[in-house]
């Protein structure tokens, strides 16, 4: 078996001088091109885990390696985020003064692309998420689902291998949410992305290859989605204790 793309060992993280403990020795491995859903109740540490993988925060203890990047070292994290991670937030976090097209271009400044190339690339990405006709709209002029799609286009701006989505459907109605998940699946399939999605919605999680369950900052268990089996073989969910 090949080396996992993401390896986290014994991750610990606490906030407010230790009063709030988010992670208590969390382990996780994610293979390249895998679609993993992390589920668990509020406060179980799933978003914190995602933020550590995104290098938005550093663990208090433990090791986390993504590809060749040792994230706990704290070095070159901006470069890592710019080139390896696409982040989709629950509340889209678009810049309100910029148009959809401009929002998608924001991460590209770090790549040193020319103005025309940035614009062309952003146009292609907006078309990819089905918003080719809304490029001049500002976030307040877009629906929740459209904003989230702009957020996904922005996450893909620098063509990262990993897409991290923190409750991407959390603020959307079920129809918009379903379309966003379809889009993530399509992108993952067509672009070969590794996707890690945090959710507390079982239906959303069911779209993933694997569901990682967390409780109180620890791995509770993992479930693999059924795979198409040869004729005559049964198809059922596998489960392992965490």
């Amino acid at each position: 078996m090949s080396e996992p793309l993401i390896q986290a060992r014994g991750l610990e993280k606490a906030f407010e001088k230790g009063r709030i403990v988010a992670l208590r020795g969390m382990d996780l491995e994610v293979a390249e091109r895998e679609f993993v859903a992390i589920v668990g109740p509020s406060g179980c540490g799933k978003s914190t885990l995602l933020h550590l993988i995104a290098a938005l925060d550093k663990p208090d203890n433990g090791r986390i390696r993504v590809g060749e990047h040792e994230l706990e070292s704290g070095r070159h994290l901006s470069r890592y985020r710019a080139r390896h991670i696409g982040m989709v937030f629950q509340l889209h976090n678009l810049l309100p003064s910029l148009t959809a097209l401009e929002n998608v271009q924001v991460p590209m400044f770090e790549l040193g692309l020319g103005r025309r190339e940035r614009k062309e690339r952003a146009r292609r990405l907006l078309a990819l998420v089905g918003l080719g006709d809304r490029e001049g709209s500002r976030p307040p002029e877009l629906s929740g689902g459209e904003r989230q799609r702009v957020g996904i286009a922005r996450a893909l701006a620098n063509d990262p291998p990993i897409l991290l989505a923190d409750e991407p459907t959390g603020s959307l109605d079920s129809e918009s949410g379903s379309r966003i998940l379809d889009l993530l699946e399509t992108l993952r399939r067509e672009r070969g992305l590794t996707v890690i999605l945090v959710t507390h919605d079982a239906e959303v999680a069911a779209r993933a290859d694997r569901i990682v369950r967390m409780l109180d900052g620890r791995l509770l268990g993992e479930e693999w989605a059924p795979r198409p089996e040869p004729v005559g073989a049964g198809a059922g969910a596998q489960q392992s204790a965490g």
Binding site: S78, R79, R81, A82, R83, I85, F89, P107, F109, E110
Partner: peptide, 16 residues
């Protein structure tokens, strides 16, 4: 502040 957080999250470096 939040916007600057977003910029950092999408990869903007401190010097930028």
């Amino acid at each position: 502040t939040r916007e600057i957080g977003v910029l950092r999250a999408v990869g903007w470096s401190g010097p930028r």
